[in-house]
Every structure is written in structure tokens, then in C-alpha cells.
């Protein structure tokens, strides 16, 4: 999904900071929380990261243009997630916390596939996971992901290719 298709182009010069933040939270809170959840694998950590992202948005509201706010949110979310991952104690295998509880419409096979995929994402390095989250899940182009991650497009493509290979190796053993 292209960045420009999401932003509505409204300016927040006439409204208060609080009102602008509330409106932007309503527009982008799912994006931020979902990205952080995929990156961190924990609901609590994802909530903390999302709060930190919107607080930073509140502080920098005057310097962020609304057409570029989504790119800014992706970049800030990634930075906050990297910070949390660095501070997180390395205790071996992380517990995979499903972001979606299966409902009656989901088949058992679908639920198992999702759990396997989330477990496979956990096994990637943060850079590889970020490339998969931004490009394969969020639908950004390599250029947009490179802008959000602060790296070159080639680096994004390299990480993405490596991540897909490792994911296929992991889930392929169970999906077939």
C-alpha cells in the first residue's frame, strides 16, 4: 500500500496539538501497534512502544508534515522497537504471543499456519524482521522501507531475501 494513499492531506495548523494528536492516533494507531507487535512479539512491549511513538509525535508535531507523517511513524516505530530489543534481556527463545485469537471462522489449519509464521518471525534478526514486516506485511516498497529503516534499498532487499529464505525453511517443514 502506498504511503500517499493513506494520508488524507489535512493540515493541523488550525487545531490544537491535543486535537491533532487525537486525530492522528485515530488514523494511525493500528499501523503503529501492529508494526510494533510484529517486531517485538509481545502485546505489552508493543503497547509501550506505540505510546512512546505517539508521545514523540506529540513533541515533534510542529516539525512533521502531515503528508509524511506515516513514513515518520514507521521510522519512529522501528527506532523505538530497536531500542526496546536492545534493552530486552537475552533469555534465549522468546515466547511467541499470538496477536490474533482464532475465532469460529478460522480453521485449525489456518491458526496453526499463523502461529508457525509468528514463531518464524521471532527467529529472524531484528533487521530481517523489520524488512519482512515493512515490505511483506505492511506492503511498503523497498524505497519506502529503506527510508523508514534509514538504510539503502539494497540493504533492505538483501535482508528481505535472507529473511524469506529463513522463513520458508522454518515454516516449510510444517506446512507441507
Amino acid at each position: 500500500m502506498a504511503l500517499a494513499s493513506i494520508t488524507d492531506g489535512l493540515a493541523w495548523g488550525s487545531e490544537s496539538k491535543e486535537a491533532a494528536l487525537e486525530r492522528l492516533m485515530g488514523l494511525h494507531e493500528r499501523l503503529v501497534l501492529r508494526t510494533a507487535w510484529r517486531m517485538l512479539g509481545s502485546r505489552e512491549d508493543a503497547q509501550d512502544a506505540a505510546q512512546e511513538v505517539f508521545l514523540r509525535l506529540y513533541r515533534h508535531l510542529g516539525s512533521v508534515d502531515e503528508p509524511t507523517v506515516q513514513s515518520w511513524l514507521y521510522r519512529t516505530t522501528m527506532n523505538v522497537c530497536y531500542d526496546l530489543l536492545r534493552r530486552r534481556p537475552k533469555t534465549g527463545e522468546l515466547l511467541v504471543e499470538p496477536s490474533h485469537s482464532p475465532d469460529a471462522g478460522d480453521s485449525i489449519e489456518e491458526a496453526e499456519k499463523r502461529s508457525l509464521l509468528e514463531a518464524g518471525l521471532k527467529r529472524l534478526t531484528p533487521q530481517e524482521r523489520a524488512a519482512v514486516v515493512l515490505c511483506s506485511i505492511e506492503g511498503l516498497s523497498s524505497a519506502e522501507a529503506a527510508l523508514a529503516l534509514g538504510v539503502s534499498e539494497g540493504t533492505v532487499r538483501s535482508h528481505l531475501s535472507l529473511a524469506r529464505t529463513r522463513l520458508k525453511e522454518y515454516v516449510g517443514r510444517f506446512w507441507r
Partner: peptide
């Protein structure tokens, strides 16, 4: 297809409300 489905998953409203309240 599995990765794309992850994007369309609905997030729990309680988590979103918690984020808004925390902010």
C-alpha cells in the same frame, strides 16, 4: 498469502484503548 493475512488481522480494541489512555 500468510504474511498478507497478518496485516489484515484485527487488533484487540483493548490494546488500542490502552495505548490511547497511556499517551
Amino acid at each position: 498469502a500468510a504474511l498478507a493475512r497478518l496485516r489484515d488481522e484485527a487488533l484487540p480494541e483493548s490494546a488500542l484503548a490502552s495505548v490511547r489512555a497511556g499517551v
